[in-house]
Design a binder for these strands. Structure first.
Lengths: 90, 90
DNA sequence: TTATATTTGTCCGTATGTATG
DNA sequence: ACATACATACGGACAAATATA
């Protein structure tokens, strides 16, 4: 989870760059199912963005079913990987 | 430690108003070194803000080396007063 | 040791205001 | 108007440290 540089002037907005970065990390196997992603606070520090931007990135992965989020705990890698309907079982 | 009124619509955000208030109290001598500041809960009641806002105010003073915080206990006035490098010895 | 209360630490959910392109 | 981003704020939940009984 080294912080790749985010380019605020790239055509891709920062939140998508971060999302792509996290997805790559998961696909690479650097983050296994049920393992926690960096917290929102850590993402803001890793990428130098505001919390809302970090949240937007996580929302992308959540919408794709790649992660699930537990309020007050954090976000975790989903078991399947955005294959089925995007839902995470227990 | 009377609760000065916080103006949510002032240019200064509430957490900075509270920080300034606490700093003034310390500079005034109303709080001596190693004496405890109001707890976060008390600050929320004194100023009518959320806990995160009270914490943000304390973080300002901590960053300035004016106070030190002990987990599970509270925050205390630092000995020097943000003069040196901002650290608190034993 | 266990239980309880207080306090700080961490975290997410949500909302508003401002600014830029 | 819209998408994006930052700063700030309120709220709720749970964990960890501390203190006391």
């Amino acid at each position: 989870m080294a912080a790749r540089e985010i380019d605020p002037r790239a055509p891709e907005p920062p939140y998508r760059q971060i999302a792509a970065d996290l997805i790559a990390e998961i696909e690479r196997g650097g983050l296994l199912p049920d393992q926690p992603l960096p917290s929102e606070k850590e993402l803001t520090e890793l990428y130098g963005v505001a919390r809302n931007t970090a949240r937007a990135a996580l929302a992308v992965l959540r919408d794709q079913g790649r992660i699930y989020t537990v309020s007050g705990r954090g976000s975790y890698v989903a078991k399947q990987g955005a294959s089925e309907d995007g839902r995470q079982g227990g």
